[in-house]
Design a protein around this nucleic acid. Structure first.
Lengths: 118, 118
DNA sequence: TGCTTAATGCAATCGCATTTGCAATAACAC
DNA sequence: GTGTTATTGCAAATGCGATTGCATTAAGCA
């Protein structure tokens, strides 16, 4: 179970399938149901956060990280964390609207794929 | 069929259910299958764009709009269009990463709900 | 008006992510 | 060790958005 905790050491959000793959590296018999069950536990405990990615669907990442956003490489389909925030100080909202949170998704080509394609 | 085209006059992206509701106002017998079929057509023709919203799932909006993003009111669950772009000129990407596109989702309370709650 | 073709409505079906039941297994406490 | 409880694995079952088959209806045209 702590197994789940451990591979949250990943530096990017993981999808269920990816969690299963990585997890099998540690517990070869690891099962999809077990992944879901433990994800649910960790979420309930507030140790994980859900990242709802527009393209990749639901991903999971450790809770408590500093504010950041995500970059999605269209070549390798991997997601990277981008520290910091590209938003301007003044987020332009119509009058009366109160923005409490935001999410930014960048799409493009990562360093690895860029180098390989060049 | 042009029916679909017509209620794209909405000023915000619509979900399938919402399209069905609105459409029934014009064609009371309107069916979900018909909505999906015409959505597929309009998408194929490039007259519609898909907006994959992290919370609301798949929405549709007219193609060809100016660059904009979306605001999601957590009270009424409606989505609003925000003209312009709140991103800084210099989007901070790690070296080697090339950002080609981006999506920004704002979350908060809209003017109507804000006024009602106050 | 009568014929041919495209567009519905309706209900059944599919695809897939997620969940559950239950027996087998592992972890513990005594 | 032995009994008790929490976890798994596996496979079947759910839930639900999206799609399809088919008979019906609407539309276009000679």
């Amino acid at each position: 179970m702590a197994i789940e905790e451990i591979f949250k050491q990943a530096d990017h959000p993981l999808g269920v399938q990816e969690i299963l793959e990585v997890g099998k590296g540690r517990v070869p018999s690891l099962n999809l149901a077990t992944v879901y069950r433990n994800l649910k536990l960790l979420l309930a405990e507030g140790r994980l956060n859900i990242v709802s990615h527009p393209v990749l669907g639901i991903l999971y990442e450790r809770a408590g990280k500093a504010h950041h956003h995500h970059f999605h490489c269209r070549i390798c389909d991997r997601v990277f964390e981008l520290p910091g925030c590209p938003l301007k100080e003044t987020v332009p909202c119509p009058p009366g609207f109160v923005a409490e949170a935001h999410e930014v998704y960048l799409f493009g080509v990562c360093a690895v794929c860029g180098a390989r394609t060049a």
